[in-house]
Nucleic acid binder design. Structure first.
Lengths: 159, 159
DNA sequence: CAATTATGATTAACATATTAACTATAAATG
DNA sequence: CATTTATAGTTAATATGTTAATCATAATTG
């Protein structure tokens, strides 16, 4: 069955997208599906996609800790959003929040042993999941794809 | 400056990602950035990313209308989510909601003239935006990228 | 060093997204 | 045709995400 035929089946919906829109729609769909699949995996460990990514950032930071602002910049997330995610992570014991004695404005987030264990336990299933998305590609093709995606992300950077 | 050096600057965060994770992280980041840029454009016309996409689906459907379930399937969105988006679109006059006389269970969504005008007015800026993301690619490269992304989205389809 | 400006984080208000539970209607089946 | 099952949609509860406004503290500067 062709793609056109497939799409025709839903109440007379007639997609008529140009190549640029097709690519961008496909990009968003692939990303959303990956996020949903990841969420389903993380859920088994009491975490969401965003919470897992905060834990990963902290786990790779010096002393397992970093500030709200740094974490939000690394994850490209707004700080009000980070505040909420951090509160829920703290409520469930995956991190602790404490003031920075050197700068009273700063809230430091620190991963707990429970948080570290969660990251470790999730790794296998997470790696497996990512593999299913990239099984069609050789290492060289992955590198090309990565460069392509980075180009898109840095589209406004001057050379 | 190398990528590694760039990332090292945020509070001792040391990324140590394998190629698969790098690709998937880059995919999600590119998608989120595109959604944010699109949102900023649509905002000028009183629409969000999701609301615009519902309008586009209806605009391409027979008689400018479709059911909640069909629209949610086309957009890969849950029906409770579609209910909320449709209510906000109706509140702002972009669509109307009505019962299907042939099946009392069905709620039909129909784009209004105001909705059609919004779609038309947005087109230029939206096309321009998509172009900035894909300016690095030839038509052939776009086709290859599109196929790659479709592969990822259909990763579980049997051949 | 007092006043201004910048930074870090939070709260509030809202849109989007999920799952679970529910209602109403249609379709299938004994 | 009455009962069961399936389908369509909504509501409720919760997580994620945004912007705007606010508060506290730090840094800058006149």
């Amino acid at each position: 069955m062709t793609d056109e035929k497939k799409n025709m089946e839903l109440g007379g919906y007639k997609p008529d997208l140009e190549i640029n829109e097709k690519v961008m729609v496909a990009l968003v769909k692939a990303s959303e599906l990956f996020k949903k699949d990841s969420d389903a995996i993380f859920k088994n460990y009491g975490l969401t996609f965003s919470q897992y990514n905060v834990l990963r950032v902290l786990n790779k930071s010096t002393d397992g800790q970093n500030s709200v602002t740094n974490a939000s910049k690394i994850m490209i997330v707004s700080s009000p959003n980070m505040t909420g995610i951090a509160k829920r992570l703290e409520k469930n014991g995956f991190i602790i929040r404490k003031n920075d004695p050197k700068d009273e404005r700063i809230t430091l987030l620190e991963i707990t042993p429970k948080g570290k264990r969660a990251i470790e336990n999730i790794k296998t299933a997470h790696d497996e999941n990512m593999k299913t998305y990239l099984k069609f590609f050789s290492r060289e093709e992955k590198k090309k794809l990565l460069e392509d995606l980075k180009h898109m992300f840095n589209k406004n950077a001057q050379k």
